[in-house]
Design a protein around this nucleic acid. Sequence first.
DNA 1: AAATATTTTTAGGCTTGCCTAAAAATTGTA
DNA 2: TACAATTTTTAGGCAAGCCTAAAAATATTT
Lengths: 219, 219
Amino acid sequence: MYSYTEENYLKTIYKLSEQGNESINTNSIAEVLQTKAASVTDMIKKLADKKLLNYEKYKGVALTEKGRKVAVDTVRKHRLWECFLYDKLKFGWDEVHEIAEQLEHINSELLTDKLEEFLDFPTHDPHGDPIPTKNGVIKKSNFILLCDAKPNQTLVMSGVADHTAVFLQHLNKISVVLGTEIQITEKNDYDGSIAVKLSGNKSMYFSKDVAKNILVKVK
Amino acid sequence: MYSYTEENYLKTIYKLSEQGNESINTNSIAEVLQTKAASVTDMIKKLADKKLLNYEKYKGVALTEKGRKVAVDTVRKHRLWECFLYDKLKFGWDEVHEIAEQLEHINSELLTDKLEEFLDFPTHDPHGDPIPTKNGVIKKSNFILLCDAKPNQTLVMSGVADHTAVFLQHLNKISVVLGTEIQITEKNDYDGSIAVKLSGNKSMYFSKDVAKNILVKVK
DNA sequence: AAATATTTTTAGGCTTGCCTAAAAATTGTA
DNA sequence: TACAATTTTTAGGCAAGCCTAAAAATATTT
């Protein structure tokens, strides 16, 4: 249907729009896809011809409903495959993304549906990101950043804002995984660091860099 | 490492050599890959440059050990994925090939190994074809064609020579699956058809076209 | 508002993998 | 053996995706 490359462009544009940006500019797409602005302009024109996005020269792009569907379906497949790799094949959460980048382009609606059933209809991937439904609906998570949470509440670790392997490995090291309970005992305005108590009454300090990349919900 | 297309060429050449052909000619590759002889010549040159096969103009090609390894690994991945689709996702044996054609190109040795373990180290795919080991060893099956088997032995359906969906669906219709026990009660020299008794004492006739595409082993 | 800096687009070119048409080599046949 | 048929290769070209360098448009400073 659509090429590997086209799907990656659509997915990238979709994710950039999710991050608040109204209209997506050429350079930001190029940066994410590790390519050059000129290449992005080429591809944008092709995707516009196929009615997958709206494009006006020098004005950036926005996905059409058709383009959004393709993008969301790619995200759906990515996250379902991550669940498979994590739950069934016992990969670490820091290892699943790269392989899912390949698997998300496998083209078979029946496969996606059967995979979803096999995994028992997961709602979130191993990083806490919601899995779009077959119809393209994504349940907005009501997670908040740990750095924005109030002290003295029981919080549940529910996701990450930074998906890089190094960050995930760091969380492994400090034993913070999805489901870990966290209480903020102290917030330091000076450097943004926080003191926390984890499940099992373990006390630790999180730097701001850590605290701003952990998503939690109030228990 | 190697492109989707390169892997498909190597796999095709490998399979043609398995079918007895010593040196593989351009046209037969083109036919299998549904492309043109000129395109095959182009690709053959590239693969020869990469030492994946030996090529002499107008003389056909033969895989090098390096090329064979890539081909066998692709076959290994294909058959493991077929097992996954059949055993875990409950696809029919007539549905798995097409999807595995895509999945076989996913590039992650760790994934292949973990998948193999998850499937509990299967030795044969859903069509009875042997799964190469990680080292590239393929156990030769001692299966024989049903049309060549002797009457009055208990035979076990163990594989197919024709892998097309129509043939597999036909076998579904006549309730012949891997493991079905078959006894030949009569062989007709005239048209090559045979009379058989299946597990459960069900008597049927198989045309030569069916009998020559079923692989069995003696129980 | 003019000058400067940045962003985006255009122009031209590259590689991969494919094509057609024509030439060359091989194989089959009279 | 020579002619015909087939197979294979070469030559030239096309689309997808990428690149660099230069031009054009937009944004930012002064």
